[in-house]
Design a binder for these strands. Structure first.
Lengths: 257, 257
DNA sequence: AGTCTGCATCTTGGATCCAGAAATCGAGTT
DNA sequence: AACTCGATTTCTGGATCCAAGATGCAGACT
C-alpha cells in the first residue's frame, strides 16, 4: 500500500500537454483508490476516465511505467487496461513503440454520427413501441438532470443514463453496446461543446421526453436526429479547429535553446 | 511436459466437445507458428480462430495454462489474448474463476441479425451510390468464390471478403467494424448452417451482385435483407436445437437409484 | 445416513525480473 | 558546420515466481 505521493512526480518530462496530466491522473487515481475487486479494472477505469475527461489528450503517449506508478500498481494491470482500451477504440498501439491516445479524424467523427443517427433513431422507434409509464417517469427525471448539467465531469454520465433509459437499453443490450461504443469515441469532444453550441439544445432532453410521452414517433425521431446533427456540427467544428491547431507547428523546446 | 492428467479433474469432465479441442488447437498453433511480430497477437489469432471454427465450443472453459502450453508461450500473452477476446465478445470472464467461451442466446442472435440488417442494408445503399466498374468486377469474382465455398474453414473468410467489398469497407471503416463485430458473434453458428439451409441461398451472392450491377438499389437491399433473414432463421434453428441439447445432458449428481 | 465445515489443491491475478528493439544522443568524418 | 553512424539508454514485451481466492473432497458431527 504505497498510497500517497509519488516521489518521481517532479521529474522533468517534456510537457507537451496543455495541463499537467500527471497530477490530474494522480488525483483521479486517488478517487478510485478503493473498492475494486481487481486492480486491472481499476486501472482500466482510471485511464479510461482520464482519456474521456481530457486529462489524457489525443496523441498523448501512454508510458506504461508512468501510468503504473501514478495508479500505484504494477505495469501488468496497466497493460491489461491498455489492451481493453485498444479494443474500445480509445488508444492505439504502435507496434513496438507503445500506446498513444487515439485521435479522431473529422471523417471518423462524421461517420460516427451517421451511425449514431441510424442506430439511435431505430432504437428510439423500437423503444417507443414498448413505452411504459414507469419508464416515462424515470425518463422525465433523467432528462431534467441531463438538461441541468450542461458542464462538468458527470455531464456525460447524466446524458448516458438518460439515453440508456430512452432506448430501453436493458431490452436491447447489443444495440446499446454499439451505441455506447460510438458515444465513447466522440464523448471526449463534447466536453467543450457548450462553448460552440447555442442555446437551442438546452432543453432538448425535456422536449424529447414530451414527444415520447405523447407517443408521436416520427416527431420524436426527428427531434432526436436534429439534436444529434446539432451536436455533430459542434463536434466537427471543434475537431476542425483542433486539427488546425495540431497542424500548426507547436513551439519546439530545445533543451539547449 | 506434465499434462496434468493425474487427477480426476482433467479436461474430460465436460465431454460435450465434439472433437478433441487440445489436438485441434495444437494443430492450429502449428499453422500459426511463425511469422508473427509478437506472440500476443499470435495467441489472439489462434484462440480466436479456434473459437470461430468450433474447435473451442461455447461454454468451454479456457484454462490459461493449458492454452499457453498448447500455443507454446507463457500465460501472459494468453491473458492478453483473452482480454481482447472478451472485448470482442467471444469469451466471458467469471470473476476469479477464469474465462469461458461465450455462448449466444437465441435472443442475442435475433438482436444481432436485426442490427446486421439495419447496418448492412444501410451500408449497401451507401455503397451503391458510389459504385464503380472496378469494384463491381472484384465483387463478381469474390461473390463467385463465396458461392463456391459452401463449407470448410475459409468459408467464412470468403464471404467476409465479398461483403467487405460490397459495403465498400474502406470508405466506412467504423461501420464495417461494427458489422464485423456482429458477424463475429454469429459466425460460429454458421458453420453447420448448410445442413439446415436449403439450396435457395446457394447463388445469393451472385444474384446480389447482379442487382448491384444493375444499379437497382431497393431490389438489392431486399435481396440482402431476405438473405440475412434466411441465414438468421437457420442460425436460430440451430441455436435452439443446441440450447435444447445443452439442457438435456444429464448432469449426474450422486443420486442413488 | 446426510450435511456441514475445514483443509488441501488448483487456478487465476499481480509483482518482479530479463531480453530485445527502438529512439536518442554523441562523436567522428567529410 | 552538417550529416551519418554507432553506442547507450530507455521502454516495451515476455517469462518466471508469489499470493489470494475458489473449488472439491473428506471427515466429523447431528
Amino acid at each position: 500500500m504505497t498510497a500517497g505521493e509519488t516521489n518521481g512526480a517532479d521529474e522533468s518530462i517534456d510537457a507537451g500537454a496543455p495541463r499537467d496530466p500527471e497530477a490530474a491522473l494522480a488525483r483521479l487515481a486517488g478517487r478510485h483508490a478503493v473498492g475494486y475487486r481487481s486492480v486491472g479494472v481499476m486501472a482500466y477505469d482510471i485511464i479510461r476516465e482520464a482519456i474521456l475527461d481530457g486529462t489524457l489528450p489525443p496523441g498523448h503517449k501512454l508510458r506504461q511505467e508512468t501510468l503504473a506508478e501514478l495508479i500505484g500498481v504494477s505495469r501488468l494491470p496497466v497493460r491489461s487496461a491498455l489492451i481493453q482500451l485498444e479494443s474500445d477504440g480509445l488508444v492505439e498501439f504502435h507496434d513496438r513503440r507503445g500506446a498513444v491516445v487515439k485521435s479522431l479524424s473529422v471523417e471518423q467523427a462524421r461517420e460516427v454520427y451517421q451511425l449514431r443517427i441510424l442506430l439511435e433513431t431505430e432504437a428510439l422507434r423500437q423503444s417507443m413501441a414498448d413505452m411504459t409509464d414507469q419508464r416515462l417517469a424515470r425518463l422525465r427525471e433523467l432528462g431534467r438532470t441531463a438538461d441541468a448539467k450542461q458542464e462538468g465531469g458527470d455531464f456525460v454520465d447524466a446524458r448516458t443514463a438518460f439515453y440508456a433509459e430512452l432506448y430501453d437499453a436493458a431490452r436491447r443490450p447489443i444495440q446499446w453496446e454499439l451505441i455506447e461504443q460510438l458515444r465513447l469515441k466522440v464523448g471526449r469532444y463534447m466536453l467543450g461543446w457548450r462553448l460552440v453550441g447555442d442555446d437551442t439544445h438546452h432543453h432538448s432532453h425535456d422536449e424529447l421526453t414530451d414527444a415520447v410521452a405523447a407517443g408521436e414517433v416520427e416527431p420524436a425521431v426527428q427531434l432526436l436526429q436534429h439534436h444529434l446533427e446539432g451536436v455533430r456540427d459542434g463536434v466537427l467544428e471543434m475537431l476542425e479547429a483542433e486539427t488546425l491547431a495540431q497542424a500548426t507547428p507547436a513551439r519546439r523546446r530545445r533543451s539547449r535553446g
